[in-house]
């Protein structure tokens, strides 16, 4: 049918547009409502889940880590506030705050020995020794607690050196050279100037300079006692304190 010209036609067209819009809005509203409903259900489910597995979350580090992962996926941070529902329900905030305090204490206590750089594994071992109760602590827990310490702005940081993770509690800036030396030291617990020069093709000045800095920062210790007469630089932060170090 041929469209009729005139004011009536325009009015009809406008009315139709209005109708379409209305329907569209309705559909959108229904969708949002459904989403909201779903989210609410999901939240209840998650709460239900958390409530049901409260003990598992508290006691089992692997379970706890998976729970965190699940929360992260749906954008919930149980640690965001200590006042929130999650903290109240799980007491999980307190768990990490306490852990954080203990980590700070251990870092301070071992600082004279390691210069403020501690192997994450060793930190965990020391934490477990302190916790007389059955609460197990995993590396994942430590990392979470340390990330919360960043709020304090006092330079608690986790750095990766090779395969190992080190926790830094002093404001020392380690540059690339230092990191490379630490990585090299992981093999035996120590390095020599020669070894550093050869491995990285550095000039001897560059190697000595970097080693001297590490020494001054208390991160390295010298050892002149080996029978080959070569000075060894040991790094307490990469060689574990809890096992006897075998010399090669």
């Amino acid at each position: 049918m041929r469209r009729r010209p005139g004011i009536g036609g325009l009015q009809t067209a406008a009315a139709a547009r209005d109708q379409y819009r209305l329907v569209g809005e309705n559909v959108a509203k229904i969708r949002t409502d459904m989403m909201k409903e779903q989210l609410a259900t999901f939240r209840t489910q998650l709460e239900e889940f958390a409530r049901k597995h409260k003990n598992d979350i508290r006691k089992n580090p692997a379970f706890r880590s998976q729970f965190h992962e699940m929360c992260a996926k749906v954008g919930v941070d149980p640690l965001a506030s200590n006042k929130g529902f999650w903290a109240e329900l799980l007491g999980i905030g307190d768990f990490y705050y306490e852990l954080g305090v203990q980590i700070v204490e251990i870092c301070l206590a071992t600082r004279p020995h390691n210069g403020g750089l501690i192997n994450l594994q060793e930190l965990c071992i020391l934490l477990r020794q302190r916790k007389s109760d059955r609460e197990a602590v995993s590396e994942d827990d430590c990392l979470r607690a340390i990330s919360k310490l960043k709020v304090l702005g006092s330079g608690f940081e986790v750095i990766s050196v090779g395969k190992k993770k080190l926790v830094r509690s002093v404001p020392t800036e380690l540059n690339k050279d230092h990191n490379e030396i630490l990585e090299l030291a992981q093999a035996q617990g120590f390095v020599t100037v020669e070894e550093v020069e050869r491995r990285f093709s550095w000039t001897s000045g560059r190697a000595i300079d970097a080693l001297d800095t590490l020494l001054d920062e208390g991160l390295a210790m010298i050892d002149d006692g080996h029978r080959d007469g070569k000075r060894r630089y040991w790094f307490p932060c990469v060689s574990s304190n809890s096992t006897p170090v075998a010399d090669t």
Binding site: P112, L215, I222, H226, S239
Partner: peptide, 16 residues
């Protein structure tokens, strides 16, 4: 059992 403790450390804090 940690070899560097048998060498006098040059850095003051470490030596203490």
């Amino acid at each position: 059992n940690y070899p560097p403790y048998f060498t006098l450390q040059p850095v003051r804090d470490t030596r203490e």
